[in-house]
Design a protein around this nucleic acid. Structure first.
Lengths: 176, 176
DNA sequence: CAATTTGTTCAATAAAAAATGAACAAAAAA
DNA sequence: TTTTTTGTTCATTTTTTATTGAACAAATTG
Protein backbone atom coordinates (compact mmCIF):
# COMPACT_ATOMS: atom_id res chain seq x y z
CA UNK A 1 0.00 0.00 0.00
CA UNK A 2 2.72 2.45 -0.96
CA UNK A 3 1.09 5.55 -2.39
CA UNK A 4 3.75 7.65 -0.74
CA UNK A 5 3.83 11.26 0.41
CA UNK A 6 1.38 11.82 3.29
CA UNK A 7 2.33 11.21 6.93
CA UNK A 8 0.72 8.00 8.18
CA UNK A 9 -1.01 9.18 11.33
CA UNK A 10 -3.66 6.59 10.53
CA UNK A 11 -7.31 7.19 11.38
CA UNK A 12 -9.41 5.63 14.22
CA UNK A 13 -9.00 1.93 13.94
CA UNK A 14 -7.94 3.25 10.57
CA UNK A 15 -6.86 1.38 7.41
CA UNK A 16 -5.94 -2.15 8.41
CA UNK A 17 -6.31 -1.36 12.08
CA UNK A 18 -8.63 -3.47 14.20
CA UNK A 19 -11.04 -1.45 16.32
CA UNK A 20 -10.99 -2.10 20.07
CA UNK A 21 -12.99 -5.15 21.11
CA UNK A 22 -15.41 -4.98 24.07
CA UNK A 23 -12.95 -6.44 26.55
CA UNK A 24 -10.27 -3.99 25.51
CA UNK A 25 -12.71 -1.12 25.84
CA UNK A 26 -13.73 -2.14 29.34
CA UNK A 27 -10.23 -2.79 30.59
CA UNK A 28 -9.00 0.52 29.24
CA UNK A 29 -11.94 2.22 30.88
CA UNK A 30 -10.92 0.68 34.20
CA UNK A 31 -7.40 2.03 33.90
CA UNK A 32 -8.66 5.44 32.87
CA UNK A 33 -10.82 5.62 36.00
CA UNK A 34 -7.88 4.58 38.07
CA UNK A 35 -5.68 7.20 36.48
CA UNK A 36 -8.13 9.94 37.39
CA UNK A 37 -7.98 8.90 41.03
CA UNK A 38 -4.20 9.09 40.84
CA UNK A 39 -4.08 12.30 38.84
CA UNK A 40 -2.40 10.73 35.81
CA UNK A 41 -3.22 11.76 32.24
CA UNK A 42 -5.86 9.77 30.45
CA UNK A 43 -3.69 9.02 27.44
CA UNK A 44 -1.13 7.25 29.60
CA UNK A 45 -3.84 5.13 31.16
CA UNK A 46 -5.19 4.23 27.74
CA UNK A 47 -1.80 3.13 26.54
CA UNK A 48 -1.12 1.06 29.62
CA UNK A 49 -4.59 -0.46 29.50
CA UNK A 50 -4.24 -1.61 25.93
CA UNK A 51 -0.76 -3.00 26.47
CA UNK A 52 -1.98 -4.76 29.61
CA UNK A 53 -4.81 -6.62 27.93
CA UNK A 54 -3.09 -7.20 24.60
CA UNK A 55 -1.78 -10.74 24.13
CA UNK A 56 1.15 -9.53 22.06
CA UNK A 57 3.53 -6.60 22.17
CA UNK A 58 2.35 -3.58 20.21
CA UNK A 59 4.26 -0.99 18.17
CA UNK A 60 3.59 2.68 18.76
CA UNK A 61 1.92 2.79 15.42
CA UNK A 62 -0.85 0.50 16.55
CA UNK A 63 -1.43 2.37 19.79
CA UNK A 64 -1.87 5.56 17.80
CA UNK A 65 -4.28 3.99 15.35
CA UNK A 66 -6.43 2.04 17.76
CA UNK A 67 -6.56 4.58 20.59
CA UNK A 68 -6.72 7.63 18.32
CA UNK A 69 -3.76 9.31 19.94
CA UNK A 70 -1.40 11.79 18.40
CA UNK A 71 2.16 10.74 17.74
CA UNK A 72 3.30 13.11 20.44
CA UNK A 73 1.06 11.71 23.14
CA UNK A 74 1.98 8.16 22.26
CA UNK A 75 5.70 8.84 22.24
CA UNK A 76 5.63 10.77 25.50
CA UNK A 77 3.24 8.38 27.18
CA UNK A 78 5.40 5.39 26.32
CA UNK A 79 8.48 7.09 27.63
CA UNK A 80 6.70 7.95 30.86
CA UNK A 81 5.55 4.36 31.28
CA UNK A 82 9.03 3.06 30.61
CA UNK A 83 10.58 5.45 33.13
CA UNK A 84 8.04 4.25 35.65
CA UNK A 85 8.87 0.64 34.86
CA UNK A 86 5.30 0.01 33.74
CA UNK A 87 6.19 -0.81 30.15
CA UNK A 88 9.19 -2.34 28.44
CA UNK A 89 10.35 -2.68 24.87
CA UNK A 90 10.30 -6.00 23.09
CA UNK A 91 12.20 -7.06 19.99
CA UNK A 92 10.03 -8.60 17.32
CA UNK A 93 11.84 -10.50 14.56
CA UNK A 94 11.37 -9.14 11.07
CA UNK A 95 9.83 -5.88 12.19
CA UNK A 96 11.98 -2.88 12.70
CA UNK A 97 9.48 -1.02 14.83
CA UNK A 98 9.95 -1.05 18.58
CA UNK A 99 7.25 -3.06 20.29
CA UNK A 100 6.01 -2.50 23.81
CA UNK A 101 4.46 -4.69 26.48
CA UNK A 102 3.01 -3.94 29.90
CA UNK A 103 4.97 -4.76 33.03
CA UNK A 104 2.36 -6.01 35.44
CA UNK A 105 4.19 -6.59 38.69
CA UNK A 106 2.10 -4.46 40.99
CA UNK A 107 4.67 -4.32 43.75
CA UNK A 108 7.35 -2.63 41.69
CA UNK A 109 4.86 -0.50 39.86
CA UNK A 110 3.21 0.90 42.95
CA UNK A 111 6.54 1.28 44.66
CA UNK A 112 8.02 3.36 41.90
CA UNK A 113 4.89 5.37 41.49
CA UNK A 114 4.67 6.22 45.17
CA UNK A 115 8.34 7.03 45.33
CA UNK A 116 8.08 9.30 42.29
CA UNK A 117 5.04 11.09 43.68
CA UNK A 118 6.38 11.38 47.17
CA UNK A 119 9.89 12.31 46.29
CA UNK A 120 8.90 15.04 43.86
CA UNK A 121 6.36 16.53 46.23
CA UNK A 122 7.81 15.99 49.68
CA UNK A 123 11.52 16.18 49.01
CA UNK A 124 12.55 18.57 51.71
CA UNK A 125 9.55 18.41 53.98
CA UNK A 126 11.75 16.86 56.66
CA UNK A 127 14.14 19.79 56.60
CA UNK A 128 11.26 22.22 56.55
CA UNK A 129 9.70 20.62 59.59
CA UNK A 130 12.99 20.86 61.44
CA UNK A 131 13.25 24.50 60.51
CA UNK A 132 9.71 25.21 61.66
CA UNK A 133 10.51 23.52 64.95
CA UNK A 134 13.14 26.14 65.70
CA UNK A 135 11.09 29.07 64.38
CA UNK A 136 8.23 28.16 66.65
CA UNK A 137 10.29 29.07 69.71
CA UNK A 138 10.30 32.69 68.66
CA UNK A 139 6.54 33.02 68.79
CA UNK A 140 4.89 34.98 71.64
CA UNK A 141 3.48 32.93 74.57
CA UNK A 142 -0.12 32.14 73.63
CA UNK A 143 0.66 31.20 70.09
CA UNK A 144 3.82 29.31 70.90
CA UNK A 145 2.11 26.82 73.13
CA UNK A 146 -0.44 25.87 70.49
CA UNK A 147 2.09 25.89 67.68
CA UNK A 148 4.40 23.51 69.51
CA UNK A 149 1.57 21.05 69.80
CA UNK A 150 0.75 21.35 66.12
CA UNK A 151 4.32 20.88 65.01
CA UNK A 152 4.56 17.78 67.16
CA UNK A 153 1.46 16.54 65.41
CA UNK A 154 2.97 17.19 61.99
CA UNK A 155 6.06 15.26 62.93
CA UNK A 156 3.97 12.37 64.12
CA UNK A 157 2.04 12.40 60.85
CA UNK A 158 5.25 12.32 58.91
CA UNK A 159 6.51 9.39 60.92
CA UNK A 160 3.33 7.42 60.38
CA UNK A 161 3.39 8.10 56.67
CA UNK A 162 6.91 6.72 56.51
CA UNK A 163 5.94 3.66 58.53
CA UNK A 164 3.13 3.04 56.18
CA UNK A 165 4.94 2.91 52.89
CA UNK A 166 6.76 -0.41 53.28
CA UNK A 167 3.61 -1.95 54.65
CA UNK A 168 1.54 -0.86 51.72
CA UNK A 169 4.13 -2.20 49.36
CA UNK A 170 4.23 -5.53 51.14
CA UNK A 171 0.51 -6.01 50.84
CA UNK A 172 0.50 -5.02 47.21
CA UNK A 173 3.37 -7.40 46.67
CA UNK A 174 1.21 -10.34 47.72
CA UNK A 175 -0.75 -9.99 44.52
CA UNK A 176 2.45 -10.86 42.61
CA UNK B 1 -13.92 52.86 60.60
CA UNK B 2 -17.30 53.22 58.87
CA UNK B 3 -16.78 55.19 55.68
CA UNK B 4 -19.40 53.02 54.02
CA UNK B 5 -20.01 52.03 50.40
CA UNK B 6 -17.18 49.85 49.07
CA UNK B 7 -17.14 46.08 49.50
CA UNK B 8 -14.61 45.02 52.13
CA UNK B 9 -12.55 42.47 50.24
CA UNK B 10 -9.62 43.74 52.27
CA UNK B 11 -6.12 43.84 50.78
CA UNK B 12 -3.15 41.51 51.55
CA UNK B 13 -2.73 41.51 55.26
CA UNK B 14 -4.83 44.59 54.58
CA UNK B 15 -6.08 47.27 56.96
CA UNK B 16 -5.89 45.93 60.50
CA UNK B 17 -4.93 42.49 59.26
CA UNK B 18 -1.75 40.87 60.58
CA UNK B 19 0.51 39.51 57.83
CA UNK B 20 1.43 35.83 58.05
CA UNK B 21 4.28 35.13 60.46
CA UNK B 22 7.18 32.86 59.42
CA UNK B 23 5.75 29.79 61.10
CA UNK B 24 2.41 30.26 59.44
CA UNK B 25 4.08 30.70 56.08
CA UNK B 26 6.07 27.50 56.47
CA UNK B 27 3.20 25.41 57.73
CA UNK B 28 0.94 26.61 54.95
CA UNK B 29 3.67 25.81 52.46
CA UNK B 30 3.81 22.28 53.83
CA UNK B 31 0.09 21.78 53.34
CA UNK B 32 0.23 23.26 49.87
CA UNK B 33 2.92 20.77 48.88
CA UNK B 34 0.85 18.00 50.34
CA UNK B 35 -2.20 19.16 48.41
CA UNK B 36 -0.31 18.98 45.14
CA UNK B 37 0.56 15.36 45.81
CA UNK B 38 -3.10 14.67 46.45
CA UNK B 39 -4.39 16.76 43.59
CA UNK B 40 -6.29 19.19 45.80
CA UNK B 41 -6.58 22.90 45.00
CA UNK B 42 -3.98 25.18 46.54
CA UNK B 43 -6.52 27.55 48.08
CA UNK B 44 -8.05 24.75 50.12
CA UNK B 45 -4.63 23.76 51.42
CA UNK B 46 -3.87 27.35 52.37
CA UNK B 47 -7.09 27.65 54.31
CA UNK B 48 -6.55 24.39 56.13
CA UNK B 49 -2.94 25.24 56.85
CA UNK B 50 -3.76 28.57 58.45
CA UNK B 51 -6.61 27.12 60.49
CA UNK B 52 -4.35 24.28 61.57
CA UNK B 53 -1.59 26.47 62.94
CA UNK B 54 -3.80 29.27 64.25
CA UNK B 55 -4.30 29.22 68.01
CA UNK B 56 -7.81 30.59 67.75
CA UNK B 57 -10.76 30.08 65.40
CA UNK B 58 -10.79 32.42 62.43
CA UNK B 59 -13.67 34.08 60.58
CA UNK B 60 -13.78 33.85 56.79
CA UNK B 61 -12.97 37.50 56.69
CA UNK B 62 -9.55 36.94 58.18
CA UNK B 63 -8.74 34.03 55.88
CA UNK B 64 -9.54 36.26 52.91
CA UNK B 65 -7.41 39.12 54.17
CA UNK B 66 -4.37 37.20 55.30
CA UNK B 67 -4.26 34.62 52.50
CA UNK B 68 -5.34 37.03 49.77
CA UNK B 69 -8.18 34.86 48.61
CA UNK B 70 -11.36 35.92 46.90
CA UNK B 71 -14.61 35.64 48.80
CA UNK B 72 -15.68 32.89 46.45
CA UNK B 73 -12.63 30.72 47.01
CA UNK B 74 -12.84 31.16 50.75
CA UNK B 75 -16.53 30.32 50.93
CA UNK B 76 -16.19 27.29 48.67
CA UNK B 77 -12.98 26.10 50.26
CA UNK B 78 -14.49 26.25 53.73
CA UNK B 79 -17.52 24.33 52.64
CA UNK B 80 -15.33 21.68 51.06
CA UNK B 81 -13.29 21.35 54.24
CA UNK B 82 -16.41 21.09 56.35
CA UNK B 83 -17.90 18.41 54.10
CA UNK B 84 -14.64 16.52 54.43
CA UNK B 85 -14.72 16.89 58.19
CA UNK B 86 -11.44 18.81 58.11
CA UNK B 87 -12.88 22.04 59.51
CA UNK B 88 -15.72 22.88 61.84
CA UNK B 89 -17.54 26.04 62.82
CA UNK B 90 -17.07 27.58 66.24
CA UNK B 91 -19.29 30.07 68.03
CA UNK B 92 -17.46 33.11 69.33
CA UNK B 93 -19.31 35.25 71.84
CA UNK B 94 -19.98 38.81 70.83
CA UNK B 95 -19.08 38.29 67.17
CA UNK B 96 -21.71 37.42 64.67
CA UNK B 97 -19.31 36.08 62.11
CA UNK B 98 -18.94 32.31 61.83
CA UNK B 99 -15.51 31.19 63.01
CA UNK B 100 -13.70 28.11 61.81
CA UNK B 101 -11.11 25.78 63.28
CA UNK B 102 -9.18 22.85 61.86
CA UNK B 103 -10.15 19.31 62.76
CA UNK B 104 -6.85 17.53 63.13
CA UNK B 105 -7.76 13.90 63.75
CA UNK B 106 -5.77 12.29 60.97
CA UNK B 107 -7.61 8.99 61.11
CA UNK B 108 -11.01 10.44 60.30
CA UNK B 109 -9.57 12.92 57.89
CA UNK B 110 -7.66 10.41 55.84
CA UNK B 111 -10.54 7.99 56.02
CA UNK B 112 -13.04 10.41 54.64
CA UNK B 113 -10.65 11.65 52.02
CA UNK B 114 -9.85 8.17 50.77
CA UNK B 115 -13.48 7.19 50.78
CA UNK B 116 -14.43 10.31 48.85
CA UNK B 117 -11.69 9.76 46.28
CA UNK B 118 -12.29 6.06 45.94
CA UNK B 119 -16.04 6.17 45.88
CA UNK B 120 -16.23 8.88 43.28
CA UNK B 121 -13.65 7.25 41.05
CA UNK B 122 -14.18 3.53 41.53
CA UNK B 123 -17.87 3.30 42.24
CA UNK B 124 -18.81 0.47 39.92
CA UNK B 125 -15.42 -1.01 39.17
CA UNK B 126 -16.53 -4.23 40.89
CA UNK B 127 -19.49 -4.61 38.57
CA UNK B 128 -17.34 -3.72 35.61
CA UNK B 129 -14.83 -6.38 36.47
CA UNK B 130 -17.59 -8.96 36.78
CA UNK B 131 -18.90 -7.94 33.39
CA UNK B 132 -15.48 -8.17 31.82
CA UNK B 133 -15.09 -11.63 33.27
CA UNK B 134 -18.03 -12.85 31.22
CA UNK B 135 -17.09 -10.93 28.07
CA UNK B 136 -13.67 -12.49 28.07
CA UNK B 137 -15.16 -15.90 27.32
CA UNK B 138 -16.29 -14.68 23.92
CA UNK B 139 -12.78 -13.89 22.74
CA UNK B 140 -11.05 -16.15 20.18
CA UNK B 141 -8.60 -18.76 21.52
CA UNK B 142 -5.22 -17.03 21.58
CA UNK B 143 -6.49 -13.84 23.08
CA UNK B 144 -8.85 -15.48 25.54
CA UNK B 145 -6.13 -17.37 27.31
CA UNK B 146 -4.09 -14.26 27.97
CA UNK B 147 -7.09 -12.12 28.82
CA UNK B 148 -8.32 -14.60 31.43
CA UNK B 149 -4.99 -14.31 33.19
CA UNK B 150 -5.09 -10.55 33.10
CA UNK B 151 -8.59 -10.34 34.46
CA UNK B 152 -7.61 -12.65 37.29
CA UNK B 153 -4.78 -10.28 38.00
CA UNK B 154 -7.10 -7.29 38.07
CA UNK B 155 -9.37 -9.05 40.52
CA UNK B 156 -6.44 -9.84 42.73
CA UNK B 157 -5.35 -6.21 42.64
CA UNK B 158 -8.80 -5.10 43.61
CA UNK B 159 -8.84 -7.52 46.53
CA UNK B 160 -5.49 -6.30 47.80
CA UNK B 161 -6.53 -2.69 47.53
CA UNK B 162 -9.56 -3.44 49.66
CA UNK B 163 -7.48 -5.30 52.19
CA UNK B 164 -5.16 -2.35 52.43
CA UNK B 165 -7.59 0.40 53.29
CA UNK B 166 -8.41 -0.55 56.88
CA UNK B 167 -4.77 -1.23 57.53
CA UNK B 168 -3.70 2.15 56.31
CA UNK B 169 -6.35 3.79 58.41
CA UNK B 170 -5.27 1.88 61.49
CA UNK B 171 -1.68 3.01 61.18
CA UNK B 172 -2.73 6.60 60.58
CA UNK B 173 -4.99 6.32 63.58
CA UNK B 174 -2.01 5.69 65.85
CA UNK B 175 -0.99 9.30 65.39
CA UNK B 176 -4.19 10.29 67.24
C1' DC C 1 -37.37 51.45 57.93
C1' DA C 2 -32.61 51.87 55.39
C1' DA C 3 -27.83 50.82 55.71
C1' DT C 4 -24.35 47.48 56.75
C1' DT C 5 -22.32 43.14 57.48
C1' DT C 6 -21.84 38.36 56.41
C1' DG C 7 -22.00 34.94 53.41
C1' DT C 8 -23.43 32.02 48.99
C1' DT C 9 -23.80 31.19 44.12
C1' DC C 10 -22.43 30.96 39.66
C1' DA C 11 -21.07 32.97 35.03
C1' DA C 12 -16.82 34.74 33.42
C1' DT C 13 -11.83 34.61 33.49
C1' DA C 14 -7.31 32.98 34.44
C1' DA C 15 -4.11 29.40 35.16
C1' DA C 16 -2.50 24.80 34.72
C1' DA C 17 -2.27 20.45 32.45
C1' DA C 18 -2.66 17.57 28.51
C1' DA C 19 -2.89 16.71 23.58
C1' DT C 20 -1.72 17.93 19.00
C1' DG C 21 0.95 18.06 14.90
C1' DA C 22 4.75 20.21 12.31
C1' DA C 23 9.62 20.15 12.10
C1' DC C 24 13.25 17.48 12.51
C1' DA C 25 16.73 13.41 12.88
C1' DA C 26 18.25 8.75 12.34
C1' DA C 27 17.98 4.40 10.35
C1' DA C 28 16.49 1.33 6.71
C1' DA C 29 14.89 0.31 2.19
C1' DA C 30 14.73 0.97 -2.62
C1' DT D 1 21.64 8.31 -3.37
C1' DT D 2 16.91 9.27 -2.67
C1' DT D 3 12.78 7.90 -0.45
C1' DT D 4 10.31 5.98 3.20
C1' DT D 5 9.62 4.54 7.80
C1' DT D 6 10.05 5.22 12.65
C1' DG D 7 10.36 7.98 16.26
C1' DT D 8 11.38 12.44 19.24
C1' DT D 9 10.86 17.19 20.49
C1' DC D 10 8.61 21.16 21.52
C1' DA D 11 5.76 25.46 20.33
C1' DT D 12 0.93 25.91 19.82
C1' DT D 13 -3.82 24.72 20.81
C1' DT D 14 -7.31 22.54 23.39
C1' DT D 15 -9.27 20.98 27.49
C1' DT D 16 -9.74 20.92 32.24
C1' DT D 17 -9.51 22.90 36.68
C1' DA D 18 -9.32 26.65 39.88
C1' DT D 19 -10.15 31.42 41.02
C1' DT D 20 -12.43 35.61 40.79
C1' DG D 21 -15.87 38.99 41.61
C1' DA D 22 -20.56 40.71 40.70
C1' DA D 23 -25.19 39.77 41.90
C1' DC D 24 -27.89 38.37 45.28
C1' DA D 25 -30.06 36.90 49.95
C1' DA D 26 -30.45 36.85 54.80
C1' DA D 27 -29.47 38.52 59.09
C1' DT D 28 -28.19 42.45 62.04
C1' DT D 29 -27.72 47.09 63.41
C1' DG D 30 -29.00 51.81 64.07
Amino acid sequence: MSVGFQDKTVAPGGPGMAPLNPVEVEVIHLFVQFSRALGQPRSVAEIYGLLFISHRPLPMNELIGRLELSKGSASQGLRYLQDLGAARTVYVAGDRRTHYEAVAELRNLAGRFLRQQILTHFQDSGARLAHITTQVEKLPGEERKHAIGRVKMLRSWEKNAKRMLPLVLRILGNGR
